[in-house]
Amino acid sequence: MKKIFLCCAAGMSTSMVVSKMEKAATEKGIDVKVIAVGMDEFEATLPDYDCCLLGPQIKYKFAEFKAKGEVLGKPVAVINAMDYGMMKGEKILNEALAMIG
């Protein structure tokens, strides 16, 4: 099972994206766990997940979070603002899976 977490300012708006990603995974028969956390939970969550996607509203944290991810060999990326705003769960899921490899 692939484990992906989304990180945003408070974990709220991102939970809707999580639902869309889970729906896309179910439709494709992909075994994946997706959660949303606030940025204060980033470091505690990172070791247990395969990758992290940051909400566009916290992209200013990208360099810091990417460095922390590299220490553990975990990729970190920022979700495309247009995909995020339009809740393109399948596209965001595909990008996360590509990061994991």
Rank of each mutant, 00 (worst) to 15 (best):
E43N: 11
C52R: 04
G85W: 02
A25G: 04
G85C: 11
P47C: 04
K2V: 15
F5M: 14
E43T: 12
D50F: 07
G29M: 10
I100W: 04
E95V: 10
G38A: 12
K91M: 09
M12D: 06
P47Y: 07
L72I: 02
A25C: 06
Y49C: 01
P47F: 08
V32H: 05
L53Q: 03
A81K: 15
Y49I: 04
A44W: 03
Y60N: 13
A96H: 03
K20G: 04
A81R: 14
D40H: 15
F42G: 04
A96C: 13
C52H: 01
G69S: 10
G11Q: 10
G85F: 02
D40V: 05
A98F: 02
A67L: 03
T14F: 09
M86D: 09
I79G: 02
E70R: 11
A36K: 03
Q57Y: 06
M99A: 09
E64S: 14
F5Y: 13
L54F: 10
K68Q: 13
A63I: 15
I100M: 12
L97C: 14
P56H: 01
G55Q: 10
I30L: 13
A98I: 05
I4D: 04
M82R: 09
G38Q: 09
A36Q: 09
I79P: 00
G101S: 03
T14W: 05
K61M: 12
A96F: 09
S19V: 15
K61C: 07
